[in-house]
Write a protein that binds this DNA or RNA. Structure first.
Lengths: 132, 132
DNA sequence: CACTTTTTTAGAATCATTATAAACTACGAA
DNA sequence: TTCGTAGTTTATAATGATTCTAAAAAAGTG
């Protein structure tokens, strides 16, 4: 199973619960955005059982740390994650409170001219807020 | 007093507490980043009295709504605000957990090629994460 | 000075997230 | 296979930022 590798890479043993989480996160070609609570709902529906929130949090954070998920920087009461871990950006529709992917190719090249001493750039993320 | 106008514009009467908040936020040429708790500490020190957190939250949110303050989109347990309301961007030093301004002129022009039907771009914000 | 409306305040309520500790499970060694 | 240890799950409690509340205080109005 391809998920086992992801889990092991993230320092996690492949357990039933974690494989269920993988199933929801990675069994589709389409990437998507989610909050922990939305993920928990999906799991409940898809696997037809409930799972402790702590398990969901732990697993998601391990994946995020390893780069299998990304946190999306946005001001919201809940943290948003993205299964699309390629270098890309986001629209945020303020009215609908929905995120929309914005591919790198849809943004001109971004050149950061200012350098900070002793620091390396880890990522450059663009958030485009939308209104009507 | 110049603060009275800002308050009135934000739909707030000029009270002693609100003027104290303005004093801390706007009496300097230098702009800065802050969380509600940092702001409360500054107020306590500068005005030598304590103020209800609720008052600080209310006032900051009113200013933010009116555009006298900006929220900085970042994943942190506390919300960060910026007294610099010009169009600009941020570095985020992951190790120090510190924000650094990144002026528009230090970023090449950003051209959003993708359009979303019926939506207007309200803002374009870049977050550059820094590591050692 | 009355009177009404807004504001401040301390504390309670809420809600996302993290911590805890007991029961359970994976997995390697014997 | 069985056992033992270390890792995992779970329900629940704890935490911490933010919001709500209701009573006291202050501001605005005539």
């Amino acid at each position: 199973m391809k998920y086992i590798e992801k889990l092991r890479n993230s320092g996690l043993r492949p357990t039933k619960q974690r494989l269920q989480i993988c199933e929801v996160l990675f069994n589709t070609d389409k990437t998507f955005h989610f909050t922990i609570n939305e993920l928990e709902q999906k799991i409940k529906k898809q696997a037809n059982n409930k799972m402790s929130l702590a398990t969901v949090y732990n697993t998601v954070h391990a994946f995020e740390k390893k780069g299998y998920l990304k946190q999306i920087p946005i001001n919201s009461s809940e943290t948003y994650f993205d299964t699309n871990v390629t270098d890309h950006h986001h629209f945020y529709d303020l009215k609908e409170e929905k995120l929309i992917d914005l591919e790198n190719s849809d943004v001109g090249p971004i050149n950061i001219l200012k350098k900070i001493n002793g620091k390396k750039i880890k990522s450059v993320e663009v958030l485009v807020k939308l209104e009507d």
